[in-house]
Amino acid sequence: MTIHQPITAFIDARAVDAPVHYRPNRAERAFELHPAVFGMLAASFALFMLALGVAFMNPTLIVPFGICAAYLLMFFGVPLVVARTVPGTTGRFQSWAEFMAEGVETGSGHLTGAQALAQIMTVPAVLVGFAVTVAIVRAAV
């Protein structure tokens, strides 16, 4: 539900900066997320391609699936190359347990690790579920 606010409420409002959590001796990653999240994304898209490839295995589909595989390699390979070109930082990287406990700061505010994973992995999980469902239907026909 929405609540009507008079225009004076917006005129008198002030922008407040979000609190910055200082972590001493913490190195920053190139994309500010744990590499396991990147791996989960890559694995989910690979599972999507694998499920559809197994369901519709046909010699005439080798070229289209090869193009899709090359695209996925570039889609996940280029960011890996870019991340490796970032100058070395001092300190240690955030562990998985720290990522889940501390979460991440986004443009819309702070998210816990579980909330961030839910936002990131929703669409890939739906795609994998769709591909598996299509594969089951294809196998039943």
Rank of each mutant, 00 (worst) to 15 (best):
A36V: 05
R84E: 09
R26M: 01
H34I: 10
T90G: 13
M74K: 14
V123S: 08
L41M: 15
P24L: 07
E28S: 14
V128W: 12
L111G: 05
V86F: 13
A30L: 02
A97F: 03
I120N: 08
H110P: 13
H110C: 12
L41F: 05
L61I: 13
M100C: 03
T85D: 02
E32G: 04
A46W: 05
V63L: 15
V104Y: 08
P19D: 03
Y71N: 05
S95K: 02
M49R: 05
M100S: 04
N58G: 11
H110R: 13
R14S: 14
M40A: 14
L73M: 11
A114W: 10
V81A: 12
L72Q: 11
T85A: 11
M40T: 00
A18P: 00
A131H: 06
G103D: 04
G109S: 12
L80M: 11
M74H: 15
Q115C: 06
A27I: 07
A70G: 15
R26F: 08
G66I: 03
L73I: 09
S44M: 15
F48N: 06
A43F: 03
R84N: 10
L33S: 01
L52V: 02
F76N: 01
S44Q: 15
G103F: 01
L52K: 08
A30V: 00
N58Q: 15
L73T: 08
A131P: 09
T133N: 14
L73E: 00
A51Y: 06
V54T: 12
A131R: 04
G77F: 06
A46C: 08
A118N: 04
P64E: 12
E102M: 10
A83C: 04
A70V: 07
F130C: 14
H34M: 10
A125H: 02
F38Y: 13
G91Y: 14
V63C: 01
F130A: 13
L80F: 06
F48E: 00
T133L: 15
R29V: 02
M74Q: 09
A70H: 12
V37P: 01
A43K: 07
A15R: 13
A55M: 03
F93Q: 10
V82H: 01
L127P: 02
A125Q: 09
P35K: 10
L41E: 07
P24V: 08
V126P: 00
E32F: 00
F76R: 01
F56G: 08
R26K: 13
E28I: 09
A46R: 02
M74I: 10
V20R: 03
F65C: 07
